[in-house]
């Protein structure tokens, strides 16, 4: 059951919230509104697709606080920040935290909608990637301890001959393990293997 990607608007100003709601509605985006960060956290179902349009200054947990909170809970919703009064340190923090954009009110509606489109795209890509990550993770679990050990060495870029010497086995045995690894992971050759596994291994 795939939920429709939803734009979550969090702003303590009811007029701004309603206006954004109407604008997003007119641009055919499903949208939900929240008066505070905690309202959003209470209502949001982790794992459902979408993006956040987030006011920076709010009582309670503010926009940047919510961004940090989501990061710590590994909820990867792309965020577009809005602020009534921008200052450089806030903007820097927001962008370093991975925000799609940081826009000052009154914002340009076209640019906002453009950013919403990008944010939803980014979210879809994130989701596709993590789905793939999950598949790869499941496949890797099928490897024997020896195969997993050899896979690590392959990923370090070591040739079969080197691996054979390091593990004190024959090069032929390494080759046999190697073809079984490729089969179990569902790839045809070493370059496909790299493409599949390396993005997952990069540090967050």
């Amino acid at each position: 059951m795939a939920t429709e990607p939803t734009v979550h608007v969090v702003d303590d100003d009811v007029a701004v919230r309603n206006a954004l709601g109407m604008l997003l509605h007119a641009a055919q985006y499903p949208c939900r509104q929240y008066a505070s960060a905690s309202d959003f956290l209470d209502a949001y179902e982790p794992g459902t697709p979408g993006c956040l349009v987030l006011d920076l200054h709010m009582p309670g947990v503010d926009g940047l606080g919510l961004q940090e909170l989501l990061a710590s809970r590994e909820i990867e919703l792309p965020i577009i920040f809005l602020t009534g009064h921008a200052n450089v340190p806030d903007a820097v923090r927001a962008m370093q935290g991975g925000a799609v954009d940081f826009m000052e009110k009154p914002f340009n509606s076209d640019r906002l909608l453009e950013r919403v489109k990008q944010a939803l795209q980014r979210d879809a890509e994130n989701r596709a990637r993590s789905r793939q990550d999950a598949v790869v993770h499941a496949r890797r679990k099928r490897l024997t301890p020896r195969e997993a050990e050899i896979l690590d060495l392959i990923l370090q870029g070591k040739a079969s001959k080197v691996i054979a010497i390091e593990l004190g086995i024959s090069e032929r045995t390494v080759e046999l393990h190697r073809s079984r690894i490729l089969r179990k992971l569902g790839v045809r050759n070493a370059s496909e293997l790299m493409r599949l596994l390396l993005p997952q291994d990069r540090s967050p």
Binding site: V16, L23, S109
Partner: peptide
């Protein structure tokens, strides 16, 4: 800065409502 924020809220709402109408 507070006043700017305070004024930008209704302005943002006005602009968004107007753009929504146009759409």
């Amino acid at each position: 800065s507070g006043i700017a924020h305070e004024l930008n809220q209704p302005l943002a709402a006005i602009v968004s409502f107007a753009d929504a109408c146009q759409r």
